[in-house]
Design a protein around this nucleic acid. Structure first.
Length: 582
RNA sequence: GGUCCUGUGGUGUAGUGGUUAACAUGCCAGUCUGUCACACUGGAGAUCGCGGGUUCAAAUCCCGUCAGGACCGCCA
């Protein structure tokens, strides 16, 4: 099929040219003795005109919406122009028309303001994808990956693929698992990330590696989490934390310039993990607005207020979220609602303090001494009309609840500028975190993260105090990427495995090949991985991850288009050595 | 695993105990020479997600179930 132009191209400069166009019939306007057809392709719209004396007019009247057609004709000036359309000054006087593919009635309107609900859109994703909105996002996604590849190629990185069929490893997310035909009863696992393989590439002597790699995690989903997602995976030998962060900043800077025309300032600000938690209650703070949390433990050291006293006796945390002019903005009823909403984070209550008529009021003030009130005012620096929401609970609960409130209230009060791009590093992560339910330590980042030099001799003695060379890149309150320097010495790696509760047998069995590799000369190395899907969301202003993926899955990991997952035949099961239960 | 929201012509919605199940859009037919959300006239199109229960009577109330969504847990 030949065509001479796309549908966004023709203008007054092309008058009288003979052209061939193709595309979908977007809309037909039949005025009786005159028929107009909007022709849509991936680039835009062109209007076709069929006059009263055009022998093709009868055929045009019968055209079905979304059919694929091919037309030939010549470009002419419109007698009434459409200033909203790039090709709005011209139209095509058609002299050949072929229907290449007849369309039956579409289950949804193929326009940006489609009225279809998301499950319909996912079932007929190929129709949904015709909408300019999704076309533009996926085109931007392409531009983003192209820019990233250009940037990393220019820095002498090699793009190397790693296996999708690999080995299940303990720790981390639940694996997607693939049965082996050659080894009945054994399974491959799809990678949660290329972590081990990219480290082995460093051992293999490649000093700069990257890959835009698919990753798979069989966990419950969210608006910003899909079961398969894409990472921009980077690893480098002989580098410091600063080297990796500087490279990442260069890449993000190049992206924002190319995609948004924004000149970002580098280096990005840095916060330690401890600072982030202290000021924002979360390891992924939205730093586009202030509203820093204030720790209030000191004020209530000797309090008579039972709720607070109990919390402090158990080593808990009392923190406040200051809200400028909040005293009038938030009524008792509003606060009751916030209290309810914060319960899902485990917070059992929400106290408030209001500064009105230069007096501190609130349900807790009557339990406070004059000295405590004075101290409260001087620590919180509340001004006339301000309010403070206070949570007293286990540290994790207090932080989670207040971090939620901070984001929510900032949104409600319009404190967030959606066009502001704010990238921040969160550094100095603890190596381990204690899991109370399972009564064991877990790696906060992953078990291959290198610990700070000054901590390396006390990994086994004081796991909770050990810090790691880890760094996350946070933007708009989302974790965009994370990385670390990696362990390249066997002793440190073994110490970490030991803290994680693995004895020598377990280490051999699960990571034997990896531990072996470390013993043949391992360049010190480190790297980072960015969530491509989230990056595209931020750069296209999309709230829903499904909109940045061509064929996404539902919140229950179901593909409505192909109806995956589906059953397999008894023959297939037999070949794999598998049996159905019951 | 848990909490909450939603499910009504092709599509999106209205309908809180008795309606001819309403509206918009799309679709079909007709009129129309400058539309571009064309306009106008007429028409077809609904097992009210599914199963059970309450009731003289259920789209509507109750229970269960399925599907979609948001969130908590989970996601090294």
């Amino acid at each position: 099929m030949k065509y001479t132009h796309h549908n966004n191209e023709l203008t007054m400069n092309d008058i009288n040219k003979t052209v061939f166009l193709k595309g979908f019939v977007r809309k037909k306007r039949d005025l009786g003795n005159l028929v107009f057809v909007d022709l849509r392709d991936s680039e835009g719209l062109t209007q076709l005109a069929f006059d009263a004396d055009n022998p093709l007019k009868a055929q045009a009247e019968k055209l079905k919406t979304e059919s694929v057609i091919e037309v030939g004709g010549h470009v002419r000036e419109r007698s009434s122009k459409n200033p909203n359309l790039h090709t709005g000054d011209i139209e095509i006087d058609v002299d050949t028309l072929h229907v290449l593919s007849l369309a039956k009635q579409s289950p949804m309107l193929i326009q940006d303001d489609t009225d279809a609900l998301e499950d319909t859109r996912l079932k007929y994703r190929y129709l949904d994808l015709r909408r300019p909105y999704l076309q533009n996002i996926l085109k931007t996604r392409h531009k983003i990956t192209a820019t990233i590849r250009d940037f990393l190629n220019s820095q002498n990185f090699y793009d190397i693929e790693t296996p999708y069929l690999t080995r299940s490893t303990p720790e981390g997310a639940r694996d997607y698992v693939v049965p082996s035909r050659n080894y009945p009863g054994n399974f491959y696992a799809l990678p949660q990330s290329p972590q081990i393989f990219k480290q082995l590439l460093m051992v293999g002597g490649f000093e700069k590696y990257y890959q835009i790699a698919r990753c798979f995690r069989d966990e419950d989903l969210r608006a910003d989490r899909q079961p398969e997602f894409t990472q921009i995976d980077i690893e480098m030998a002989f580098v410091s934390e600063d080297d990796v962060m500087r490279l990442s900043e260069g890449m993000i800077k190049a992206l924002l310039k190319k995609i948004k025309g924004i000149e970002l300032k580098t280096p990005f600000p840095r916060l330690t993990y401890q600072e982030a938690l202290k000021h924002y209650g979360t390891d992924k703070p939205d730093t586009r607005f202030a509203m820093k949390l204030i720790t209030l433990n000191d004020i209530f050291k000797k309090t008579d207020f039972k709720v607070f006293k109990t919390v402090l006796d158990k080593g808990g945390l009392i923190k406040g979220l200051p809200i400028k002019n909040g005293a009038k903005l938030y009524s008792r009823k509003n606060i009751d609602q916030l209290t309810k909403d914060v319960a899902k984070y485990g917070a059992k209550g929400l106290a408030f303090f209001k500064m009105q008529d230069h007096t501190l009021s609130g349900p807790v003030t009557k339990f406070m001494s004059e000295a405590e009130l004075t101290m409260f005012k001087s620590i919180t620096k509340l001004e006339e009309g301000d309010m403070m929401l206070v949570v007293a609970d286990k540290a994790n609960t207090t932080n989670a609840a207040l971090a939620y409130l901070r984001n929510r209230i900032a949104k409600e009060q319009g404190l967030i500028d959606d066009n502001e791009f704010d990238f921040t590093w969160v550094t100095d992560w603890p190596m381990f975190e204690y899991n109370e339910e399972e009564d064991r330590y877990q790696a906060l980042h992953h078990p291959f993260t290198k610990v700070h030099d000054q901590d390396k001799d006390r990994i086994k003695d004081a796991p909770s105090d050990v810090l790691a060379y880890g760094y996350d890149l946070v933007a708009q309150g989302q974790e965009l990427g994370g990385g670390s320097l990696r362990i390249h010495e066997l002793t440190m790696q073994n110490d970490v495995f030991t803290v994680l509760g693995m004895d020598e047998t377990a280490i051999r069995q699960q990571f034997g090949f990896f531990v072996d590799a470390l013993q043949y000369g391992t360049p010190p190395h480190g790297g980072i991985a960015f969530g491509l899907d989230r990056l595209v969301m931020i750069l296209t202003g999309t709230k829903n991850m499904r909109d940045v993926i061509a064929f996404p899955k539902t919140a229950s990991a179901h593909c409505l288009l192909s109806d995956a997952p589906g059953e397999v035949s008894d023959e297939q099961l037999k070949a794999l050595g598998l049996k159905r239960r019951e």
